[in-house]
Amino acid sequence: MRIARWRDGDTIGEGFVEGSDVVSFPHGRTVASVLAEGLDAARALRTETFGPSGARRRPLADVDLLAPVVPPSVRDFVTFEEHVEGVSAGVEGKSDVPAEWYGAPTFYFTNPHTILAPSEPVRPPVTERLDFELELAVVIGAVPGSDGSNLDATSAAPHIFGYTIMNDWSARDLQAREMKVRLGPCKGKDFGTTLGPWIVTADELEGYLDEDGFLAVHAEVRINDELIGEDLVSNMGWPFPELVAYASRNSRVMPGDVLGSGTVGNGGCLGELWGRNRGLTPPPLQTGDVVRMVIEGIGEIESVVGEQVAAPPLPSARVRSRARTR
């Protein structure tokens, strides 16, 4: 199944993508409510939607796809060793994967309020090093009897409702400054994350699972039709159920949560290539550039880089005496 959200004039639609059409959920259902009921309920809903009475179809070409989910939270992992090697070469001057990377699938939280539609332009902050990040993301669904906390990999797997493409836009110069404070990233990342074009349910991709449980799907990214990077998602360090399990560790995953795989290797972002090439080759993204991402079994998203948005001036910290008593 493919599940999507779309705009049709002044109306927001939510439902199934069937061939070249979209079909709204019955009874006022939404993607959020379907995720809250889980994958088995979604299958039953599809049977009902396409039952004997038929369903009202609308050509996909006549609507504008929105991000397929409005996530309550977005976690983004860093699970591709090759990506870490390349980026570290640019930041630290040499390729290095710290021992701590192998110990656990680290992630950060990004902004769920700046999610972009699959063809919506990104409006970056003022930056000299705008970058993309090609990722596959899982969307969490409910599992009866589970509250989504302290899962192991086996119990985490059913919480993977489906998958979507994720572009974690990055302003690398802002990010580099933030990371020197040993916290973040924040403003180098939280201005935009593109999701789409739809959610492909987990059962649709079971045939791509290799013998170790990794999704062996091909992912590629092009800038202005030039191939920049490509990789197999199965080159990640942990399979997706282990990412979900780690996210739930002493915490919870909830229906609608999005968990990004982290940037694929072999050119999944410009930052990796800058590190390997010892310079800004290929050049940073510029206004008007078109970034197209394709992941096997999912589909594609295509985004145009819009004009940069200047923010108000940033005050520096006040360096004051620390001998005050009140």
Score class of each variant (00 low, 15 high):
Ala42Gly: 09
Gly162Leu: 13
Trp238Leu: 11
Ser303Leu: 13
Asp147Ile: 09
Glu272Gln: 15
Ala317Tyr: 09
Phe132Ala: 14
Pro158Cys: 08
Leu134Arg: 12
Tyr102Asp: 05
Thr194Ile: 06
Leu134Trp: 10
Asn266His: 03
Lys189Trp: 04
Val91His: 13
Phe191Leu: 14
Gly213Asp: 09
Pro118Ser: 04
Gly260Asp: 02
Ser149Leu: 10
Asp203Cys: 13
Cys186His: 13
Gly256Asp: 04
Gly279Leu: 11
Ala67Met: 13
Asn235Phe: 12
Ala142Asn: 05
Glu37Ser: 15
Thr49Met: 11
Lys180Met: 15
Pro144Arg: 11
Gly162Trp: 13
Val63Leu: 07
Glu204Ile: 08
Asn235Lys: 15
Val122Cys: 08
Ala216Pro: 05
Asn266Arg: 05
Pro72Thr: 09
Pro158Lys: 07
Ala89Leu: 06
His27Asn: 11
Gln286Trp: 00
Lys187Tyr: 01
Gly229Val: 02
Pro158Tyr: 06
Leu136Met: 15
Ala171Lys: 00
Gly207Gln: 13
Pro52Cys: 05
Asp289Asn: 12
Val69Leu: 13
Val217Ala: 02
Val70Thr: 15
Phe25His: 05
Val294His: 08
Ile228His: 07
Ser248Ile: 01
Leu209Gln: 08
Thr47Ile: 07
Glu92Ala: 12
Ala245Thr: 03
Ile295Arg: 00
Thr287Gly: 08
Ala61Gly: 05
Ser316Phe: 13
Asp231Arg: 02
Ile298Tyr: 04
Asn224Gln: 04
Val87Ala: 08
Ile228Trp: 06
Val78His: 12
Met1Gln: 00
Glu37Gln: 14
Thr106Phe: 13
Thr325Asn: 09
Phe214Ser: 01
Ala310Asp: 00
Gly288Asn: 08
Ser234Thr: 02
Pro124Leu: 08
Trp101Asp: 05
Glu81Pro: 01
Leu259Cys: 00
Thr110Leu: 02
Leu205Lys: 10
Ser316Asn: 13
Glu135Thr: 07
Leu116Ile: 05
Lys94Trp: 11
Arg5Thr: 00
Ala137Ser: 14
Pro312Cys: 06
Ser53Thr: 12
Leu39Thr: 10
Ser170Thr: 14
Ala117Lys: 02
Val23His: 06
Asp210Gly: 12
Ala99Asp: 08
Val138His: 07
Arg249Ser: 12
Lys187His: 01
Gly213Met: 10
Thr114Leu: 11
Val84Arg: 00
Ala55Val: 05
